[in-house]
């Protein structure tokens, strides 16, 4: 159950006490007075906790009018368009994170050793990718310098379900 309020709040407005409410998106708890404040301009919504949750406080969140686009992060599945194919890597523009399209440009790199699980050194990037290919990929690492986002992509046809969890395991190490 959720309460869809018509109450518009602005940053800094008190939404309640942290003993009664949990702060969701667009809200925060002040460490000084343990009150929940809004951090965005938007509608206040109060979400009831799931009945089996250990914490039975309802969550308050503020939904702003300008939702930011999704940002890829390690572990997210992205859809990307290959822009350039080189001998050892291909670069790609990320278009969607999960099912949501990105607002701004994020670029990624698919390395030769990340294309498939076996015989990773025998992958021929030019046989695997063409510029313009749409690939589904798992983001393995974020790189914040000249290359925006570093992603690890698999050709759509070659993506197997066993492969994805393994990559995540690798990433944990």
């Amino acid at each position: 159950m959720e309460e869809d309020g018509d109450v518009v709040v602005t940053p800094g407005e008190v939404l309640g006490k942290s003993s009664d409410l949990k702060a969701g998106a667009g809200a925060y708890v002040s460490p000084q007075d343990h009150a929940v404040y809004a951090s965005l301009t938007g509608f206040r919504r109060i979400l009831s906790p799931p009945p089996d949750a250990p914490d039975q406080r309802p969550t308050v969140e503020v939904t702003g009018h300008k939702a930011h686009g999704p940002v890829p992060e390690p572990g997210s599945i992205v859809t990307a368009r290959v822009t350039r194919v080189m001998a050892r890597m291909a670069s790609a523009d990320i278009m969607c994170v999960g099912t949501k399209s990105v607002r701004e440009k994020f670029s990624g790199i698919i390395r030769q050793q990340d294309v498939r699980a076996t015989e990773i050194d025998k992958v021929d990037m030019h046989l695997s990718f063409h510029a313009g290919d749409i690939v589904r990929a798992l983001v393995v690492q974020q790189w914040f310098q000249l290359v925006g986002q570093r992603c690890n992509a698999h050709r759509q046809g070659k993506l197997s379900k066993e492969r994805l969890p393994r990559l995540e395991d690798d990433e944990m190490k």
């Binding site: 602005t10 940053p11 800094g12 667009g26 925060y28 002040s30 404040y37 951090s39 965005l40 301009t41 938007g42 702003g64 009018h65 300008k66 939702a67 930011h68």
Partner: peptide, 11 residues
């Protein structure tokens, strides 16, 4: 900043 929807402690 409020218009841009950037989270702030207060206005």
């Amino acid at each position: 900043l409020a218009d841009a929807g950037i989270p702030m402690r207060d206005l």
